Amino acid sequence: MKLGVFTVLYSDKSLDDMLELVASKGIEAVELGTGGYPGDAHCHLDSLLADDNKQKEFIEKIRSRGLIVSALSCHANPLHPQEKIAKEADALFTKTVKLASKLGIPVVNTFSGCPGDHEGAKYPNWPVAPWPNEFQEILKWQWEEKIIPYWKEKALFAEKNQVKIGLELHGGFSVHTPATLLRLREECGEVIGANLDPSHLWWQSIDPIEAIKILGREGAIHHFHAKDTIVDQPNMNRNGLTDMTSYADMRNRSWYFRTVGYGHEAKVWADIISTLRLYGYDYVVSIEHEDGLMSIEEGLTKAVQTLQPIMVKESVGEMWWT
Results as ranks from 00 to 15, higher is better:
209 I>M: 13
275 T>H: 03
158 A>H: 00
150 Y>D: 09
245 T>S: 04
266 A>Y: 00
234 P>C: 14
242 T>I: 14
171 G>R: 14
245 T>N: 07
190 E>T: 10
148 I>C: 03
231 V>I: 15
216 G>N: 05
181 L>T: 11
162 Q>E: 01
272 I>D: 01
147 I>V: 15
216 G>L: 02
228 D>W: 09
175 V>I: 15
188 C>Q: 05
168 E>Y: 04
159 E>N: 10
225 H>E: 03
249 D>F: 07
278 L>Q: 06
198 P>A: 12
187 E>L: 01
165 I>H: 00
230 I>F: 06
221 I>H: 05
237 N>G: 12
267 K>W: 11
189 G>H: 08
186 E>D: 15
218 E>Q: 13
183 R>W: 07
180 T>M: 04
261 G>Y: 08
216 G>S: 10
214 I>N: 02
153 E>R: 13
156 L>D: 10
263 G>D: 14
169 L>H: 03
157 F>C: 03
196 L>G: 06
182 L>C: 12
200 H>F: 14
238 R>E: 15
193 G>P: 01
183 R>K: 14
178 P>S: 13
185 R>E: 06
202 W>Q: 10
197 D>P: 05
267 K>L: 15
240 G>W: 09
219 G>S: 05
279 Y>V: 00
193 G>H: 00
230 I>S: 04
223 H>T: 10
266 A>T: 13
168 E>H: 13
215 L>Q: 09
213 K>P: 01
153 E>G: 05
278 L>K: 11
208 P>C: 11
227 K>A: 15
212 I>Y: 00
166 G>K: 00
163 V>H: 00
201 L>V: 08
255 W>V: 07
178 P>A: 07
182 L>I: 05
